[in-house]
Design a protein around this nucleic acid. Sequence first.
DNA 1: AACGCATAAGTAAGAC
DNA 2: GTCTTACTTATGCGTT
Lengths: 84, 84, 84, 84
Amino acid sequence: MNQPGIGHNSAANARLTSFVQRIEKLEEEKKTIAEDIREVYSELKSVGFDAKIVRKVVKLRKMDKEDREAEAALLDTYLKAVGC
Amino acid sequence: MNQPGIGHNSAANARLTSFVQRIEKLEEEKKTIAEDIREVYSELKSVGFDAKIVRKVVKLRKMDKEDREAEAALLDTYLKAVGC
Amino acid sequence: MNQPGIGHNSAANARLTSFVQRIEKLEEEKKTIAEDIREVYSELKSVGFDAKIVRKVVKLRKMDKEDREAEAALLDTYLKAVGC
Amino acid sequence: MNQPGIGHNSAANARLTSFVQRIEKLEEEKKTIAEDIREVYSELKSVGFDAKIVRKVVKLRKMDKEDREAEAALLDTYLKAVGC
DNA sequence: AACGCATAAGTAAGAC
DNA sequence: GTCTTACTTATGCGTT
């Protein structure tokens, strides 16, 4: 493919390096935020809430109500199909 | 279970709501960063680099780094095992 | 700690190597089974079932009925607490 | 969605049940192997090795292996990019 | 018994 | 559009 000639083209090398560094920096930030989230869960746990359930709450709030209901209905159907 | 009595305790409700909102805000930020990363890939692609290759480069660099960290951790564990 | 002296004791070395190999072999087998499970999901998907829901079915069957109900009740309480 | 009509179709019910059982059986086997691995660790611990260290050794070996594979994959991608 | 870690499951994005 | 691969989330295990 035709990406800029690497290895014989210092300008392209520099450019690529720059892209890679930007990505790595962003990934670093993302990781930091993930840690912050974990901290919130651990704080909430330490004051007595059930972290597992709170995770479900967060997830459900993200889902559209319709989707939620459709999924619940399908699950119900399958459970009956397998005899539960 | 001994989580704060919810339902008859507006203070606990408010607290839980606050935790949930903090989490949602943080997840929002995380999502934004993930989008930024995708944008970098698309930018780099648009100037002629092969995104797939760059992804592998980033991955490899990360693995190398982790490898070094794992080695250091192992050494550390050895030292502790030996009483240092 | 007092694990057998490694590095100056070839018997201990051999023993450790043997343990490590046993573990690696077992992990290999575990990986194979995980692949088999994935294959079943993809087969069931190919004949029209919703793999995501089937996963939930499997998970729910594993849970005790009581636990299931207790969890559902708590989830409900939390959802109300945050105004859903 | 177009999954087989469940609930009014005993053939589909039977099929789903069969899939679920296959999965459950496979998960059982996987669980057994996980137990075997734990046993090896406990055996090795009982003869004086430090399980924590051995875990790290296993992990490191795995990472090294993955590293090599990732490198090979990158090389492969380069070659393809260049038309080989 | 709680805490953090490490593995495993589930979900979503990207390649072909 | 399918299919795989990568990332994220979640659970369980070992440790303190």
